[in-house]
Simulated scan of single mutants.
Amino acid sequence: MIPDVQSPMRPLLEAVRDGEHIGGRDLIAAMSDRFELTDEEWTALLPSSRQGWMDIRVGWSMRHFS
């Protein structure tokens, strides 16, 4: 199931806690694995754009850390 807006926050912090740079695409893939998304969920797009749900969820969480 695609996580709500806040659910990726802690896993994202855990993924980057060692200070090593991880690119956005790799973080999105890691979060998709973490939340056990199906292929359909992984590729699901927002109805109003061409962006994926996980792109938006992970991007929103990352902006809150900067």
Rank of each mutant, 00 (worst) to 15 (best):
M1K: 15
M1Y: 08
M1F: 14
M1V: 12
I2F: 09
I2H: 12
I2Q: 11
D4P: 10
D4R: 04
D4I: 06
D4Q: 05
V5K: 15
V5S: 10
V5R: 12
V5Y: 07
S7R: 03
P8Y: 05
P8D: 09
P8R: 07
M9A: 10
M9H: 11
R10A: 11
R10S: 13
R10L: 15
P11S: 02
L13P: 11
L13D: 15
E14N: 10
A15F: 14
A15I: 10
V16S: 07
V16Q: 12
R17W: 11
R17C: 12
R17T: 12
D18L: 04
D18H: 07
D18K: 06
D18W: 04
D18E: 12
G19S: 15
E20H: 12
E20T: 14
E20Q: 13
E20D: 06
E20A: 07
H21P: 11
H21Y: 07
H21S: 08
H21A: 14
I22D: 00
G23P: 06
G24V: 02
R25M: 09
R25A: 11
R25F: 13
R25V: 06
D26P: 05
L27E: 05
L27R: 08
L27T: 08
L27S: 01
I28R: 02
A29T: 09
A29W: 07
A29P: 05
A30C: 10
A30M: 01
A30P: 02
M31H: 01
M31Y: 03
S32L: 02
S32A: 04
S32E: 05
S32N: 01
D33P: 04
R34N: 02
R34S: 12
F35Q: 05
E36C: 04
L37W: 04
L37T: 02
D39W: 09
D39E: 13
E40W: 02
E40G: 03
E40T: 01
E41W: 01
W42S: 06
W42C: 07
T43I: 00
T43W: 03
T43K: 01
T43S: 00
A44M: 04
A44R: 00
A44W: 00
L45G: 01
L45S: 01
L45K: 11
L45R: 06
L46S: 06
L46A: 14
L46W: 13
P47Y: 13
P47R: 13
P47A: 10
S48E: 15
S48K: 10
S48W: 05
S48Y: 07
S49Y: 14
S49F: 06
S49P: 14
S49V: 10
R50S: 06
R50C: 05
R50A: 04
Q51L: 05
G52N: 04
G52I: 04
G52V: 00
W53T: 10
M54I: 03
M54W: 00
D55P: 02
D55L: 00
I56M: 12
R57D: 05
V58M: 03
G59I: 03
G59D: 15
G59Q: 05
G59M: 00
G59F: 03
W60R: 13
W60N: 08
W60D: 09
S61Q: 11
S61D: 10
M62S: 14
M62H: 03
R63L: 08
R63P: 04
R63V: 06
H64R: 09
H64L: 15
H64N: 11
H64V: 07
H64E: 07
F65M: 15
F65H: 11
S66K: 14
S66V: 08
S66D: 11
S66M: 13
